[in-house]
Design a protein around this nucleic acid. Structure first.
Ligand SMILES: [Mn+2]
Ligand SMILES: [Mn+2]
Ligand SMILES: [Zn+2]
Ligand SMILES: [Zn+2]
Lengths: 137, 137
DNA sequence: AATTGAGCGAGAACGATTATCATTATCTTG
DNA sequence: CAAGATAATGATAATCGTTCTCGCTCAATT
């Protein structure tokens, strides 16, 4: 039986995503499509892609890591209260790059920018007084 | 016996750190100072501070989360090859903030910016051929 | 065909975070 | 002040994302 090209499979799946996706969710999605792939392989390939600078890794405050392709990447406003992620229309890096001064020569291959705060739905809500039982996820 | 003000204790300890610190390390440091505090309480208070937007949460690729006060923070150039981290002299956010247009009203409480690429020492080196066993970050 | 080595998947191991629960301090009320 | 209600605490267990381990399979090479 021919070995499926897992790397290409993962790249294509990442390309289809509208939002950054976790390794576990990626694994579940592939399995649901009938693919025979192991969780370890998903993590292995993601590590490879990361080393090559092809992946954007969005480390969430809860520890889970979301992945997206570095080429056409987006940045998000993340509400620390309701966890909603709002995509910015464009990456501002091209503009910003000119104004940045590095302490030493450095070739930037990709970048991560995450903005955390309160969305307009959560700004007006009363402060949690009690135990604040709402999970941060 | 009077209950100690754990929240103040944690805020003061965070203020002393030169680098972002994990919850576990924070707990160990407090215990080493002779404080009687539980790990659960550390996590509880960190959750509270996070909800209030006082904390910068740096999710590491291995799942560990590093915390720092949102007031004074730094950004780094990270070499994906030798893993060296070069600290930027200043946070460029104040300048950039003016030029950003949000798709909806959003109150930014803190941000995370990381630049990945090749440092000047690693730019000329040949590509890794072997197993690339170097741990990621 | 035999050898070699990289890639694979299932599951165990790991570790950080979260949930649980009995206990204790603090607040409320009379 | 006494007594009950409420909230905070810390030890421990449970959870869960990630990494490690280990036979196994496949494909390239000889
Ligand atoms: Mn960008
Ligand atoms: Mn900054
Ligand atoms: Zn929100
Ligand atoms: Zn380097």
């Amino acid at each position: 039986m021919a070995r499926p090209d897992h790397r290409r499979l993962i790249l294509e799946t990442l390309q289809k995503q509208e939002q950054p996706i976790s390794a576990q969710a990626l694994f579940a999605q592939l399995r649901q499509q009938g693919q025979t792939i192991g969780l370890a392989t998903v993590y292995r390939i993601l590590s490879h892609l990361r080393r090559e600078g092809l992946l954007c890794c969005h480390g969430q405050p809860e520890g889970e890591i979301l992945y997206s392709l570095a080429e056409h990447h987006y940045h998000y406003l993340t509400c620390i209260r309701c966890r909603r992620m709002i995509r910015l229309p464009a990456c501002p890096w091209q503009e910003w790059e000119k104004t940045l001064k590095f302490p030493e020569p450095f070739q930037v291959l990709y970048h991560e920018l995450q903005l955390f705060g309160l969305c307009h739905l959560c700004q007006g809500l009363p402060k949690e007084v009690g135990g604040s039982k709402t999970p941060l996820q």
